[in-house]
Design a protein around this nucleic acid. Structure first.
Lengths: 246, 246
DNA sequence: ACCGCGATTTGATCGGTATCAAAGCCCCCG
DNA sequence: CGGGGGCTTTGATACCGATCAAATCGCGGT
């Protein structure tokens, strides 16, 4: 018994080293489905890497050998036409899973929007781990279903909403995800991506994104801080009215 | 032993009745992840229903109490704006899973494109069954990942491709899924949906769908049979060139 | 403080798709 | 065989967003 206990402790120590236990994504990533003592399985195959802003995690068309979880930072997932038009089909935040499972070749490009820390796994090893840990698999299923729901909402936006509505919807998403109240009643948000990236996300051009934002400012719905990356939503209800017309 | 055998037989008989064993979706639906002897779990909660063409399986906004698998027929999954614009965000074929899991309320409307047979389960019971059958859960994960990949491809189409390219891509999908060779080198397909549904699927209007198809006919890429729902793709390579411009 | 470069805004024009309207076709049903 | 209704095609026009072009802004480096 005592021996077992000691062994257990030792195993635990190697299973769940400080790197995992103190990881910022411990509670929000797929790892959250695992007990401390189970973390060894992922720890054994994962390695940390930080990706500088703008750098790709992988390219569409490459062999699909790795997946990862976002520890800190942000990434974009893009699909492209052969002649170079781009569409951002997903954004990834801390805790999110990165990669396409069960595919031999990557069809999408994933790249960092800012300096980003990842915990990277060989895909094959990760898939095997998944089989051994049903709770993790279940969590991945839930996330995938959420991602699918999100994708479907974006299909509606891309297929049927005009520029104004897409912009308003995007800003509302930001407000709901990250907005925090401000003196004066507005809610402040940081727009975490450039105009060009907003355009790629919304299926528009840089120019119409800019024009629509200017118009929202002119209407008093939005106010920009110096430097443009921060703004405050003064009339959230108006944004909602734009997204959901009568 | 003998008794056990008899009991086993009896159990098997009730577990996997003719309804399941002879089901057209037995090999392609989630049921394919189950041994004959396991089918009881789904059989116990499932009931068959046939939906007439045009009828809804459920409406966005309703309580999300049921899910199903498609036995025969076709359904569309639509998202809508508050003012009535519609986007088809998915098409469902025999073997496909129907419904949004782990959501209290439905956000999407599902309706039959033609007379459709379903095997319907109460959602809560289905989710419990999923927990008890990891192989089924794994299969659902794979399907959900495929659906997500598909959704991402469609986001690229809706956000960045023009009408011509969307139509060509849709026709190619049909050719690849259901096309069969014809004397003269072309491949024959049946377009399984109306012009209006094509428009809702591709984020276009009926008129531009019609015009684009007429243009493909005029160019000799497509030929229509009498009655329009069947056509043959004469120059598949041209379609590919449209979808993937240099 | 000045310069220079990339990002953003703003302006002018073009084009593709939506919209409005009408004609044609197909099929069902009497 | 003829009429009717819905689906589809075709035509004319309007408008939104893309494209082309230029000015402005913001920021880091000197």
């Amino acid at each position: 018994m005592l021996t077992e206990g000691l062994l257990q402790d030792r195993t635990d120590a190697s299973c769940a080293p400080a790197r995992c236990l103190s990881c910022k994504a411990r509670g929000s990533s797929l790892c959250a489905a695992m007990a401390d003592s189970e973390l060894s399985a992922l720890h054994a195959i994962g390695r940390r890497r930080t990706l500088p802003a703008g750098q790709a995690f992988n390219w569409a068309g490459d062999r699909n050998n790795h997946c990862a979880t976002v520890v800190e930072g942000m990434l974009k997932v893009t699909a492209s036409t052969t002649d170079g038009r781009e569409q951002i089909v997903g954004l990834l935040f801390p805790g999110d899973f990165v990669g396409e499972l069960f595919e031999e070749d990557a069809t999408l490009t994933v790249s960092a929007l800012c300096e980003t820390d990842l915990c990277i796994y060989p895909r094959a090893a990760f898939e095997r781990t998944l089989e051994d840990h049903p709770r993790m698999e279940r969590m991945l299923l839930r996330r995938t279903l959420l991602a699918l729901g999100d994708a479907r909402g974006r299909m509606l936006a891309l297929g049927r909403r005009n520029a104004r509505e897409r912009i308003a919807g995007f800003l509302l998403d930001l407000v709901e995800r990250t907005g925090h109240p401000e003196a004066g009643g507005g809610r402040r948000i940081a727009i975490p991506i450039s105009r060009g990236e907003m355009a790629d996300y919304l299926g528009l051009t840089i120019e119409t994104v800019s024009r629509q934002l200017s118009q929202l400012k002119a209407t008093g719905i939005l106010a920009f801080a110096k430097g443009d990356r921060g703004c405050t939503v003064l009339r959230e209800a108006s944004l909602r009215a734009i997204v959901n017309p009568a």
